[in-house]
């Protein structure tokens, strides 16, 4: 944590574990992207099994988790497996420095808006005795969490072969 606070510029910290399937699946893409941004955005990898104290200090609840720091201050965080394109977008955003563009991915405000709407529609469904509105609430709820759903990410990768990890050379 002291190293992080003293590190100037952008740093991406990845918390992973050897037994974590999504971590292993993401590793080739992450190594490739980290290599492409070498010298601009350092990647620090923390093994959750070997450094539980750091994981607790970083308040990481699930793995893999990527945390973006700028000048020692956390500016963005995302959990779950990410595609090569998503990792590239995250590293590019981190290396852009101070900017007014939002980080890639769904913002917390939009996520809370969708979750609140799902709850409101669910309550309306119950109050108005309209069971089909529960389905509407479920769809809205899914729209709020789909980027964190590993099943949805797996389905997306099947639909979009171009976003798959490029084959690493032998």
């Amino acid at each position: 944590m002291a190293r992080l606070a003293a590190q100037p510029g952008p740093v991406i910290v990845e918390v992973w574990a050897p037994w974590c399937g999504p971590c292993r699946a993401m590793a080739p893409a992450l190594e490739k992207v980290a290599g492409e941004f070498e010298g601009r955005v350092p990647l620090w990898r923390i093994n959750a099994d070997e450094d539980a104290a750091s994981v607790q200090a970083l308040r990481v609840m699930g793995i893999p988790t990527m945390i973006v720091y700028r000048d020692g201050v956390e500016v963005n965080r995302r959990s779950g497996q990410a595609s090569y394109a998503e990792l590239t977008a995250l590293f590019a955003w981190a290396s852009a420095g101070e900017s007014s563009t939002p980080p890639p991915g769904m913002s917390g405000q939009v996520r809370m808006l969708r979750l609140g709407s799902a709850l409101a529609v669910l309550l309306l469904a119950i109050a108005a005795s309209q069971p089909w509105l529960i389905l509407v609430a479920a769809i809205i709820f899914f729209s709020a969490v789909h980027d964190r759903c590993p099943l949805w990410q797996a389905v997306q990768r099947m639909w979009r072969p171009a976003a798959k990890t490029p084959a690493t050379s032998a």
């Binding site: 409101a120 529609v121 309209q130 509105l133």
Partner: peptide, 15 residues
């Protein structure tokens, strides 16, 4: 928009 939509739905479906 979300607030307006929910209000409209409540007024309509809530009777």
């Amino acid at each position: 928009r979300v607030v307006l939509g929910i209000v409209m739905l409540v007024l309509g479906w809530g009777g």
